[in-house]
Simulated assay, not measured.
Amino acid sequence: MALGLVLAAVAGPAVARDSLGLFGGWGAFRDAGVPRCYAIALADPSAMSRERQPYAAIGTWPRRGERNQVHFRLSRQIGSGAKPVLAINGQRLTLAGSGGDAWSADRRMDAAIVAAMRSAGSMRVSARDGRGRPFVDVYTLAGAATAMDAATLGCARD
């Protein structure tokens, strides 16, 4: 059910999605018409106030030559000048971001994040919102590696 909420949040009007599987709290999906494949998960529940349901997605667009792009939909809009930070496996990586979204700075950072996700138990994205209040979105990574692999394989023939 939670993954259904994510799909509703990221759905395009006429995009068909094929499920490639559910793995722990992560799902893998394929949009055949684009084509694109992605692994996606909702952030863990939080008692902090949220403007929207946050999620993390790792996407592949084979026709564009893009693979394992990292994207976070944040629980709040980030403030002007605020820099989202990803904490994973003892690393702190400053992400690019605006509005309610954050992403890696480049392909090298995408690769580092995906590699860290394969061995970490969780990851956290933190930032300050427009009122200067800190917020954190936490993700459990059980199943993430398998979902990312399923998404990559789902677009391997495109």
Rank of each mutant, 00 (worst) to 15 (best):
L3P: 04
L5E: 15
A8E: 13
V10Y: 03
P13S: 15
P13L: 14
A14S: 14
D18T: 10
D18Y: 09
L20G: 00
G21W: 02
G21A: 06
G24S: 06
G27C: 05
R30C: 08
G33N: 10
Y38F: 15
A41F: 01
A41K: 00
D44G: 06
D44K: 08
E51I: 05
Q53I: 12
A56P: 02
A57K: 00
I58E: 02
T60W: 09
T60I: 10
R64N: 14
G65H: 14
E66V: 15
R67P: 05
Q69I: 10
S75L: 08
I78G: 00
P84V: 01
A87Y: 01
I88T: 01
G90K: 09
G90P: 11
Q91K: 12
T94E: 13
G97I: 09
S98V: 06
W103P: 03
A105S: 14
A105D: 12
R107G: 09
R108M: 11
M109R: 10
A111K: 06
A115M: 07
A116H: 08
M117P: 02
M117I: 13
S119I: 13
A120E: 08
S126R: 06
S126G: 11
R128Q: 13
D129I: 08
P134F: 14
T140C: 06
T140H: 07
A144H: 02
A147T: 02
A150Y: 01
A151Y: 01
A151Q: 01
A156S: 15
A156T: 10
A156I: 09
R157V: 11
R157W: 09
